[in-house]
Design a binder for these strands. Structure first.
Lengths: 247, 247
DNA sequence: ACATTTACTGTGTTATTTACACTAACTCTG
DNA sequence: CAGAGTTAGTGTAAATAACACAGTAAATGT
């Protein structure tokens, strides 16, 4: 024991050698992986790609890519999302970094995970413009296939994160079209939180925040009674920031 | 515009060349930086080192180091904390990754930030065992010097994080000795949250959680009335997990 | 014993959360 | 066009949690 201590002291003071296991990680790369949530037809979905390259060729995976030399992580995430979906100007947030030494079979790749929330359906079609994927699909979060790498873990942590965040920040609106009904908004909350909410309490609380603008306009093209449409009022949201919203 | 589009299509389909700006980041390294909070003598402090190497030689900086080839990020954080303080078995958590391309003047270093909370004073002395720092000091968070790199930013984000976390998880106890008084506990909350709390409400709420065990024991060696000592009861904490604690 | 310092305690007020069920409006069908 | 079917929309009472607030108790030192 004393011997080991002496050895260590010598090592640090002499600065002459380094143990192999102490070598830092060189020649590594890092990537961004995105958990991209979408809401459509009452289902919460995420975007998956079918890989066209080894490793994990033909497996489903989260969309992701390597970070370039001269871009920041946030810039990189935006670029990658844009390349994979054709979309820009989306609320994205870094939430965790995954770096197990063996998470990638071909060498060390530390992956910085982001999530994004976006409105599906109708107006904006997805136009992926990259060849590293055979195809991209929206998949219901309740029905995920086996994922490549540690992507299941990355997804789990991402879902956990937005569960917490939806109570503090108006991220639910990012999933909805500009004009939406209170029932649609409640659906989003219920899907993300994974539980039913009381309709009256939900509406009471949502309206009490004063961040919804009643558009004096009704849904069109629906069977049965049409609901009032609302729009999210970003300016009024400022005061609300950071407060807990419980359901 | 059409021309650009055609060019892009060709680029993706032919797969023959790559634009320089599209090169991924190779030969990069990553590091861990730690914001290590300590509580001592009524002050909230963090551990800083005075750098002994370029760049930023002689500047104060957060303790941090490069990740090794065969360790996970969490392992790396624990190792680095241990090397810098001699301590182990500390609650640590990854909270953000900083990766601006120019955050390190000598090349790209993506840094994964962790925070740790630890009890100071008395029993365990700090024994840093590394030469890359001239010295390590505990510095009051209210009185930080200019920090190297983007470490001020890393610190700010870390403080923000534990402000939020202290309301959900019993991290305050990590800062205190095993036996502590309610007044000490309140001090920790007040320092982290940066505001005064009402004594009666604080005690009422803390005791109502049922995670404190009254030790039937009093402080010793203090002038004036001695306070009752408590211990944190980990088992009873389980039910509390995840609930918001507001002050 | 007296001054000093910190520990400790309770109540009333207000705001928030929760639980709970019926009517209104519209559409479709026969 | 009447009636069935479906979703939109609304209020109240009880329980719980948050907040504001001040004096007594216990120990020490002089």
């Amino acid at each position: 024991m004393n011997c080991l201590r002496l050895f260590q002291d010598f090592r640090f003071k002499s600065n002459l050698f380094i143990l192999k296991e102490e070598l830092p990680q060189f020649n590594s790369t890092f990537s961004i992986d995105c958990v991209i949530f979408g809401f459509d037809g009452g289902e919460l979905k995420i975007l998956l790609i079918e890989r066209n390259e080894e490793p994990f060729k033909d497996w489903w995976a989260l969309p992701g890519n390597l970070v370039r030399a001269n871009e920041s992580l946030d810039q990189s995430a935006s670029r990658i999302l844009n390349e994979l979906t054709g979309l820009g100007d989306i609320y994205m947030e870094q939430y965790y970094t995954f770096g197990d030494p063996d998470r990638h079979p071909q060498g060390r790749v530390v992956s910085i995970a982001y999530y994004a929330l976006l409105r599906l359906g109708g107006d904006k079609a997805l136009k992926p413009i990259s060849t590293y994927a055979k195809q991209a699909h929206w998949v219901n979060v309740k029905d995920l296939p086996k994922l490549a790498f540690d992507h299941q873990q990355i997804f789990d942590k991402g879902l956990e994160k937005i569960k917490r965040r939806i109570k503090h920040q108006p991220i639910a609106f990012e999933l909805l079209p500009e004009k939406f009904t209170l029932t649609q908004l409640q659906n989003v909350y219920e899907l993300i939180l994974g539980k039913k909410l009381d309709k009256r309490n939900f509406r009471k609380k949502m309206l009490s925040f004063g961040v919804l603008r009643d558009l004096d306009e009704k849904q069109k093209g629906v069977s049965f009674r049409a609901a009032t449409l609302y729009r999210f009022d970003k300016r009024k949201y400022a005061k609300l920031f950071g407060k807990e919203i419980s359901f």
